[in-house]
Design a protein around this nucleic acid. Structure first.
Length: 256
DNA sequence: ATGGTAGAGGATCTA
């Protein structure tokens, strides 16, 4: 079973890249963030044409998440239960007894912003919900755009970014609180290239200089860690015309 | 201190 996540920064613009990527990589499930589409505009036919079903929840202009899958997902959820939120940032479904939770964590803007407080509150609500989901679904994958670089090796210039949004102590504590529920960062299960990142600012030639951050993650519950065979970042999509500022991350699980 | 780019939507807001 192959599971992937990709913040596409507008599915309308990135649709040809997404369908090409599905054909080339054949994931069982691809999780998308920042689709930036209202539900009535979701391109179900174009995605169906390459053999994938879609479930999605979106809104005008911002946010929006989706699950593209070969098989039909069950128990689809499109909000964190008990957390009032106008922003469409989560979608979850179950495939082969594997609970797949796709998240688009708020960016936070900067640590003085109201958006930062919203981010921390959102992460707290996520934690409470994932704790409950792990009881129901021992095979669980939490993946998406976390907007958190967990440790200094995940940041191109940790001295400059120290304490700033995406790297602040409170955000990192919220990330490790998720791991403490019984989740593992699949990327660090394996040897990886130095300076591996998943996002580079569009500005200042950040990608060419590899001035990025690793903020997109695939976390696995303990039951899935033992059957995880690989986790890789696909930088190739950042070299295409009109790229997203994020690139896909994918895991391979055996025996599923 | 500011700007640099991209996307949505039609002026700014978000990232």
């Amino acid at each position: 079973m192959k599971l992937a996540t990709w913040n596409v920064n507008s599915l309308k613009v990135r649709l040809p890249q997404v369908t090409d990527w599905l054909v080339s990589n054949e994931p069982d499930v691809l999780c998308l963030q920042e689709t930036k589409l209202q539900d009535l505009n979701f391109p179900i036919n174009e995605i169906s044409a390459v053999g994938y079903q879609s479930v999605y929840v979106g809104q005008k202009a911002y946010n929006g998440v989706a699950l593209l899958s070969k098989q039909t997902g069950e128990m689809v959820t499109t909000a964190i239960p008990g957390f009032k939120d106008d922003q469409k940032r989560i979608i979850a479904a179950t495939y082969n007894d594997v609970r797949v939770i796709c998240i688009y964590v708020p960016n936070g803007e900067n640590i003085e912003s109201d958006k930062y407080q919203y981010k921390l509150a959102w992460l707290f609500a996520l934690n409470r919900w994932v704790r409950e989901e792990l009881i129901k679904y021992p095979k669980l994958v939490l993946l998406g755009d976390f907007n958190i670089a967990p440790e200094d090796p995940d940041v191109h210039n940790p001295e400059i970014w120290e304490g700033k949004v995406l790297c602040s102590q409170a955000e990192r504590e919220a990330y490790f609180a998720l791991l403490n529920l019984g989740l593992v960062d699949s990327f660090r299960l394996f040897d990886q290239p130095e300076k591996s990142y998943t996002w580079w600012d569009y500005r200042m030639m950040a990608f060419r200089r590899n001035q990025g951050m690793r903020i997109d993650h695939i976390l696995l519950s303990n039951e899935l860690v033992s059957i995880c065979e690989a986790c890789m970042i696909d930088k190739s999509t950042r070299k295409l015309e009109q790229p997203s500022d994020h690139v896909p991350v994918m895991v391979e699980l055996s025996e599923l």
